[in-house]
């Protein structure tokens, strides 16, 4: 049901440029206006989300300590899992954000007869890493369409990425890896009963969308070739804010690719994909476990009424006296003033 719904939405998204450009001939709308609009939504949307999170304070320092705290000098503390200083926090965050360290810990629980056993389950980690890093490399590679003199790091990355020189033009390794990663993530949602049960359409949709983007991209590279020079004229114009429709033929596949990318960009800030920036805000990861060393201030902390010693002593005066527990008049007098 959820999968079908996402597939339908995806089909509609593909139909829109097909009709818009193919039938109605709205080339400028799809080549210029919609991409600009989508990326405006992407930038402003994400910045809005960031500021919105930042508007709420983190009242308490609630680090998840997954390792030994810093305490006695002769006990080795876990710098990554229980960071006590800022740079240790940065390190922890680095490992979280770039290497998905928490996911790497993943286990799978199963019954072995009456015994619960926990096996390592790193597939999810691998799938996620493949997908995310391939995506990153692919984005960097795409800079060749947006910059006039392509910087050497982009050239190097492209060269490494097409290292195997299979076919003409050579296939990119990351193109295969991203499909492998995405395919695994999708398959997992369909096959693993638990994950399947908790998946919404909004979980399938981004996967399908990105898969479609990757597929249209790969198709264009390997089989249904567009006029790259024309594309670069368009994309370079977009990036330098001199948008113009090039003379050459941009090809339908390119319009679909571009429209799906625009959809992804516009969808990004309002979906679970915001985890990309949200992860940096995660209070259980980005705070040091130094609670007893330094003060953390909660801006809305307010005083509360509690049972003071004076009230308590009054209440229990008789039993205190009887039990021979000292009565403290001095303090109650001070407190009264």
């Amino acid at each position: 049901m959820n999968l079908i719904f996402s597939l339908i939405v995806l089909a509609i998204l593909i139909l829109i440029p097909l009709i818009g450009v193919g039938v109605l001939g709205l080339s400028s709308l799809f080549a210029i206006f919609i991409p600009y609009l989508a990326f405006a939504i992407f930038f402003f949307g994400l910045i809005y989300r960031i500021i919105d999170w930042a508007r709420s304070p983190q009242p308490y320092k609630i680090t998840t300590t997954s390792g030994q705290q810093k305490s006695l000098s002769w006990i080795k503390h876990s710098r990554l899992e229980s960071p006590a200083s800022s740079w240790e926090v940065y390190l922890r965050m680095f490992f979280e954000v770039f290497l998905f360290r928490s996911l790497f810990r993943n286990l799978r629980a199963d019954f072995d007869g009456k015994r619960l056993i926990y096996g390592s389950a790193k597939w999810l980690w691998l799938g996620a890493i493949l997908f995310h890093f391939s995506f990153l490399v692919i984005m960097i590679r795409h800079l060749r369409f947006f910059v006039n003199e392509v910087p050497s790091f982009v050239q190097k990355i492209s060269a490494v990425d097409s290292f195997f020189q299979l076919g003409v033009p050579p296939i990119y390794i990351t193109d295969i890896l991203i499909l492998a990663g995405l395919g695994f993530l999708l398959l997992r949602r369909l096959v693993d009963a638990k994950v399947n049960y908790l998946s919404y359409a909004s979980d399938y949709f981004p996967l399908l969308l990105i898969i479609s983007i990757a597929l249209t991209g790969i198709l264009m590279r390997l089989y249904v070739k567009p006029d790259l020079y024309a594309i670069k004229q368009l994309t370079y114009g977009l990036a330098t804010f001199n948008p113009a429709l090039p003379k050459g033929n941009l090809s339908m596949l390119f319009y679909i690719h571009l429209f799906l990318v625009s959809s992804l960009a516009a969808y990004f800030p309002f979906s679970k994909l915001v985890h990309m920036v949200g992860v940096f805000f995660s209070p259980t990861r980005n705070m040091p476990n130094d609670n007893r060393m330094s003060r953390h201030i909660n801006p809305w902390e307010y005083p509360v009424k509690y049972v003071t010693y004076a009230e308590w002593q009054e209440k229990f005066r008789d039993v205190l006296e009887e039990a021979g527990i000292p009565i403290d008049e001095e303090w109650t007098n001070v407190a009264q003033k």
Binding site: L143, F146, V147, N148, E149, P151, Y236, A239, T240, N242
Partner: peptide, 10 residues
């Protein structure tokens, strides 16, 4: 990034 890399040399 595309914007920055082109900045000033369009």
């Amino acid at each position: 990034m595309p914007f920055w890399l082109n900045f000033g040399k369009v």
